[in-house]
Each structure stands twice: as C-alpha cells, then as structure tokens.
Design a protein around this nucleic acid. Sequence first.
DNA 1: GAAGATGGGACAGCCATATTGACGTATCTT
DNA 2: AAGATACGTCAATATGGCTGTCCCATCTTC
Lengths: 169, 169
Amino acid sequence: MAVPSSVSVTPTASPLFLRENEVRRGVELLFFGYTRLTRAIDEGLAEQGLGRAHHRALYFIARQPDLPISTLLKILAITKQSLGRVLTDLGDRGLVETRTGNVDRRQKLLRLTPEGIQFEAQLFDALRSSLASAYAAAGQESVTGFWRVLEGLIPAKDKAMVVALQKDM
Amino acid sequence: MAVPSSVSVTPTASPLFLRENEVRRGVELLFFGYTRLTRAIDEGLAEQGLGRAHHRALYFIARQPDLPISTLLKILAITKQSLGRVLTDLGDRGLVETRTGNVDRRQKLLRLTPEGIQFEAQLFDALRSSLASAYAAAGQESVTGFWRVLEGLIPAKDKAMVVALQKDM
DNA sequence: GAAGATGGGACAGCCATATTGACGTATCTT
DNA sequence: AAGATACGTCAATATGGCTGTCCCATCTTC
C-alpha cells in the first residue's frame, strides 16, 4: 500500500471524506459487520451458559496470559463489579484461574486453564472462519486498508493498549 | 496447517488468511474501533435520556424515511417488543412520527419529525468527525479495503438489506 | 364473503450486562 | 507510619434484550 505516511495528507482526497454517504456507508458496514461477527460465536457460548461479556474476557486472557485484572479492566472499559461477575462465572466453570503476582503480590494474574484454552480456541475457530473468508474475498490490499481505517478510529490514548496486544505480530 | 513444500510460498500469499495473528488483529481492531465509534455519541444521547438502542432506530429511520416497522425489525434484528419500547420513547420525545401506509393500510411508516432530523444530524456529526478523520488518516485506498472486508463479513442473506440502504450512493 | 396470513400493539415476566457508591483487606510505596 | 494501589464485595439501579400470549385491523386467497 502506497500511503505516504511521512507526508502531510494530500488535500486532493479530502472532498471524499466529507461526504455524508461515505460516512454512512462506514457506519452501516461497521454495524452489520461487527454484529454478524459477534453472532458467529453466540451458539458456542450458549452451550456453556455464557454470554458475550464472558467471551470478551476469555478472549483477552487468552491473548495475554498472566494478565492482571487491572489491565483487563482497562481493555474492556467496564467496572470492576461487572468484570467481577464475569470472572466468577468463568472461574466456576474451570475456564480461568488466577495466581498471585510474583512481582506485586496484590495482583491476581489471569490465565486460562487447559479447558479454557480449548474452549476459547473453539470459539476462535468461528471468528477465524468468518474473518478469513472476508479477508480472502476482499484481498490482501483490502485487509491492510481495513486495519488502517480501524486504527484511525481508536483514540490516541487507547492506541498503546491495542498495540501492546499485537506486539508479537 | 499443511503447506505444499513443492510450491514457493511468499509471506503475503494465501497463508496470510489462515494465520491466527491476522485474524486476532481484525477481531481486536473491530472491537475497539466499533466500541469507540459508538461512544462518540453517548453524551449526546444521554442529554435526551436516550440510549444506543434509540440511536440505532433513529439512524435507520433517518436513512430511509417512510420505513415500515417490519423492515426496521429486520434491519435491527431485535424483537417487536424491544423495538416497541424504543419507538414509544422516540415518539414521546417528538422525534419520530408514524403515518398509515397508503399502499397497505396495516403498515405504519416511520419518519423523523423536524426535531428528530435535527437531533439525528447532531449525533451524526459526531460519527462523521470520528470516521472522517479515520478515513483521512488511512487514505482513500484504505477506505475501499475497509468497506470490502466488512462487506465480506455480512452473510449473503443479509446483504440485500445493506445494499438497499446504500442504493442512492 | 369467509378463512387465513400479515402488520402492528400490548400485557406480564424474565435475563444479561452494565452502572454508581461505599466499604474492607492486603500489599506496595514513600 | 501514612497513603496509594489492587482486588473483592455489598446493595441498588438502568438498559436493552428475550419469551409467550393475546388482540385488532387489514390484506390476500379461495
């Protein structure tokens, strides 16, 4: 992709970005795309009596084992109480376990149990199959653009958090 | 994953679409991008004592004036009861009005009142400013890719509905 | 014209997921 | 020793979904 990141944005393209229809198209595609992707895993979650909130926690714990609760709270941007219930449910089902932090003993580090790893992988398969087919249909250049636009939607103050998740890529 | 060793594989070829990190990146960017975009309008909604469910209805009514309720139900994919409460709230605030269909008198066609138009436009401004800056930062080619991938996430049976929204583009 | 399908409204009750505010305990920092 | 931080927990509340049931008006079909 030839986007001159070192150069100031060229004004020639700017009329496009101010037109209402382009914005509405993005809003709608994001709405439908996001909701359809999340629906792909509802069935698997329901089998365990879990909801989407549980999956979000499961997902980020899978992504960053030994994640402290405070970090997960920042990622999910929900309250401690809301997350508490979710983690209790996941713990009760033997999907998530905690260990006391060795650097800071106040922390509880979250990780998936073997059963949790397997369950998350099963849910992830549904996400992968949806996204992989969308990627394949759109082509690699489109995927890069897809990422770039979404990155632009994330406020600067949150960007470090997202980058941290992807540092191993 | 079995890659035929007789074929030379470039790092950008099809295996890209099966690799876990690319999928996880998409999942995460969609999550953060979508949630951040929706947060952009929460404040404006709260001023009216409304929530995101109200905005979704408002948005699609703005997009397709004289929309029958049954169509809106398909778009939002929620139950009649859930939508009913939302529409009652919007009607009570004088943002939405209904008229009896002239083709089919059982139908109630939804449209925004002048106040509703103004309010939706105000919320839309927040969406526009977020999306427009993401578009501008990513560049026009990226925007096309962004659309393409999201379109690929929408199941075939829903695609006609989305296209219908955008037929005037 | 009668029967059935469809569009819409309304009742009651339930569930999942989020919120605020307050308070307690263990541990780390200064 | 004092204060900040990480985590847990209580109680109360709001939002936005859901199911099931029943109703009425209107359109379609035979």
